[in-house]
Design a protein around this nucleic acid. Structure first.
Lengths: 354, 354
DNA sequence: TTGTAGGCGTTATCAT
DNA sequence: ATGATAACGCCTACAA
C-alpha cells in the first residue's frame, strides 16, 4: 500500500457508485459467493446468515449489476420484442398483455421499434441480443432469410405474432389476416357494392397489410370482379393520412360506394373526411376498418370492423416463449379467431342516381 | 492441453454463441485492443487496418456485448424513462419524440412503466440504474425523498417532465397543469355554468391530476363558488370508465350542465355516454378534456380541450439530458405553453326548464 | 500505430 | 454451509 492511513479511498468528485456484491459481503462479514447464493438460491444458505445478508442488502439498497450478471450467467430473463411502431395502439395493447404475462413468469420485456424498416429490424435484433435478450417476439413472417439463420445459429428462441401461416416453419401465434378480411369483404359485396376502394398501410414492408388486401381481392373474384378495378391507396398509419386518402378517392369518376381500410385508424380518418365533405356514412358511402380498437366503437357512426384478440395474442405469445425457454420444443403455429363487428358504418349500396 | 488434435473445441450441442472481440481480432490478425479502437475511436487507427477489421466485423456480424461494455466503460449511452403507463397515448407521443431526439445524440432509450405505483417506480428506477442507464426521465415531481436522495448520491442526471413548478429544486420541463386547467375552467364559468362536475384520474398517486383539479377549484372560487359543491369522480384512464362516471353524474339531482374531465380519454367516454342517454352535447351538457390527443378532433362534437406540446416536451427533455450528460449544470425548470382548443363540446349553459 | 494486461461485478466450480 | 477463484467480454491506461 502506498498510502496507508485512510479507511476509505479519497472521496470521489462525483457521487458514489452503486453498492456491489463486494460491499454487501464485507458489511455482512461473509464472502461474495454467499451473498450471491442468498439472492439466487436462498435455500442453499443457512437461515441465520441469510437473514443477516438480506438485511444488509436492504439497508444498502443493493441491486445486482445487470451487465455483470448477464456476463457471468449468460442468462438475463429478458425477452426482446421488435415491433414496427409504438404509435400503433394495437401493438401497445398486445404488448401490454405480453409484458404482464412475462412478468408472471419472472421475465422482463425489452422493446425496440423498427419503424417498418427491415434493415432497422435486423439491427434491432442484433442490439437486443447484444443486450442479452434470451428470446424474441417478432411481428409478421417476412424478413430476410439471413435473419432467421442468425436466430437459428445462435439458437435464440422466438415467436412470431400478428400473423398466421399454417405452412410457416416458425413458432407463431396469430390470426389469418387474409381470411379475416375476405370474410368482411364478402359482406361488403353481398350488400351490393361493386365500386369498392381500399386504403391500406404501405404494402412493401408489411405482410399483414398485403394479406388483408389479398383477402379483398379473393372476395372480389368470387363475385366476378377483377381486382384491378379496385382502387388501392397506400398511406402510413394516421388519422390524417386516412382523411387525405379519402379526399383523393372522392375525386374519382365513379365514386366508390364502399371503402375498406386496412386498419381502424385509417378508417376513422377516412370517415371524418367523407362526412366533412358532406357525405353520409353509410348513406352515401360505406366504410370498414380492421383491428377493433376502442375508437371504432366511439365514432359516429360506429365502425364496422374486424375484432382481433390482441390481448390474448400477447398473453399466449409470452407463454410460448416461456415454454421455449424452459426447454419445450416448438409447436405448430397457433391460430386465433377473429370476429366481424357489424356496426353502423357499413350499409347497402346507395340507389343509383347518376 | 489434455487433448491436442482438434483446432476447435468439440462442437457445442446448442447453437454457437455470438462472436466476440476476440473472434474478430483473431480473424483480422490484430489485437482486441485494435478492434475495440476501430469501433470506438476509429481515427486512432490507420486506415488500412481499420478497413480490414471493419470488414471482419461486418462478415461475422459482430456486435459488442452490451453488458461487458457497460462493465468496462461504466457508460452505456442509455437513458431510462419511467412512465406511469404505456397505454396512455400522450406518454406514447412524448416518448416517441424523446427517443427520436435521443437517437440524434447517439443515445438509446430504455422504457419502464410504474403503473402509477410509487413503490414500483422506485423499483424500476433501481432496475434501470442496474441496467446501466446513464440518466433518467421521470414524470411529475411527487416521489419519496429517498428516491431523490438516491439519484443525488449516485449523481445520476435526471429531468422531470409533464409538470412544472417554479419552486422545484429539480431540472424539469413541463407545463403548469393547474394554471392551464384554471384558464379552461374560467371559460366554463363565464359561459354561465354553475353546476359543474369533474371526472379525473385517481388523485392519490398523480400530482398532475391533482393540479388540474386545483385549477378548477381556483376558477370556481373566483366566481364565488365553493369547491365542495363541485362533484368529483376519480376513475382510471379509459373510455369505459369515463362513460361509467358520466352515467353516475347523470343520476344526480341537479344534473351538471358542464363536466370537466382530467383528460381527453375520459372526456370521450363521458361524451359518448351522455349522447347514448339521449342528451345533446353541448345543447344539454357541455364537456371538456385535457391533452388534445388526436381523437379530440375526431369525435362529434369535437372536444374542447387543452393542447399540450407533448412532442416538444419530449424533444427538449432529451436535449436537457444530453446536455447534463455532457457536463452542463442543471438550469431552471422550463415552462412550456399550453393552449385552449375551443371546439364544439363546450357551449353556454342551457336555459332553465326545471 | 499497435499490443499487453488489469479490472469492471457476477456466477459457478471447486475446495474446504 | 461457506469461501476462494476462474471465467464472462470489453475498455483503457500503459508499454513498445
Amino acid at each position: 500500500m502506498t498510502e496507508g492511513q485512510g479507511q476509505k479511498p479519497p472521496a470521489r468528485k462525483a457521487g458514489s457508485d452503486a453498492p456491489t456484491l463486494q460491499d454487501v459481503a464485507q458489511a455482512a462479514g461473509v464472502s461474495t459467493a454467499t451473498v450471491s447464493r442468498c439472492l439466487n438460491m436462498p435455500e442453499r444458505v443457512v437461515k441465520d446468515t441469510r437473514e443477516r445478508v438480506l438485511a444488509v442488502v436492504e439497508k444498502l439498497g443493493y441491486a445486482p449489476n445487470f451487465g455483470a450478471r448477464a456476463l457471468a450467467a449468460k442468462r438475463t430473463n429478458t425477452i426482446g420484442a421488435i415491433i414496427p411502431t409504438m404509435e400503433n395502439a394495437i401493438f401497445a395493447r398486445g404488448l401490454q398483455a405480453f409484458q404482464e404475462e412475462l412478468a408472471r413468469h419472472g421475465l422482463t420485456l425489452l422493446v425496440a421499434s423498427s419503424s417498418y424498416q427491415p434493415e432497422l429490424e435486423r439491427e434491432q435484433i442484433r442490439t437486443l441480443l447484444a443486450r442479452g435478450a434470451d428470446a424474441l417476439l417478432l411481428i409478421g413472417f417476412e424478413r430476410a432469410a439471413s435473419v432467421y439463420e442468425l436466430l437459428d445459429q445462435r439458437s435464440v428462441p422466438y415467436v412470431i405474432a400478428w400473423a398466421f401461416d399454417e405452412t410457416a416453419q416458425h413458432p407463431a401465434i396469430g390470426f389469418d389476416n387474409r381470411e379475416a378480411m375476405r370474410a368482411l369483404a364478402r359482406q361488403v359485396f353481398e350488400l351490393g357494392h361493386r365500386d369498392v376502394a381500399i386504403i391500406t398501410a404501405p404494402l412493401a414492408p408489411n405482410d399483414r397489410a398485403r394479406d388483408r388486401v389479398s383477402g379483398v381481392w379473393d372476395a372480389a373474384r368470387e363475385v366476378g370482379l377483377c381486382p384491378d378495378e379496385i382502387t388501392l391507396i397506400e398511406t402510413p398509419y394516421s388519422i390524417e393520412n386516412g382523411a387525405a386518402a379519402m379526399e383523393d378517392l372522392l375525386g374519382q369518376k365513379p365514386r366508390p360506394t364502399a371503402v375498406m381500410c386496412g386498419n381502424d385508424v385509417l378508417a376513422v380518418g377516412a370517415m371524418g373526411q367523407a362526412q366533412s365533405m358532406g357525405l353520409s356514412v353509410p348513406g352515401d358511402i360505406s366504410i370498414t376498418g380492421f383491428d377493433d380498437i376502442e375508437i371504432a366503437g366511439i365514432v359516429t357512426p360506429a365502425l364496422t370492423t374486424v375484432h382481433v384478440p390482441h390481448r390474448q395474442m400477447g398473453k399466449e405469445a409470452a407463454q410460448v416463449l416461456s415454454d421455449l425457454l424452459g426447454g419445450a420444443t416448438a409447436g405448430a403455429p397457433v391460430r386465433l379467431q377473429t370476429e366481424i363487428m357489424s356496426r353502423a358504418s357499413l350499409g347497402p349500396v346507395p340507389r343509383e342516381d347518376a
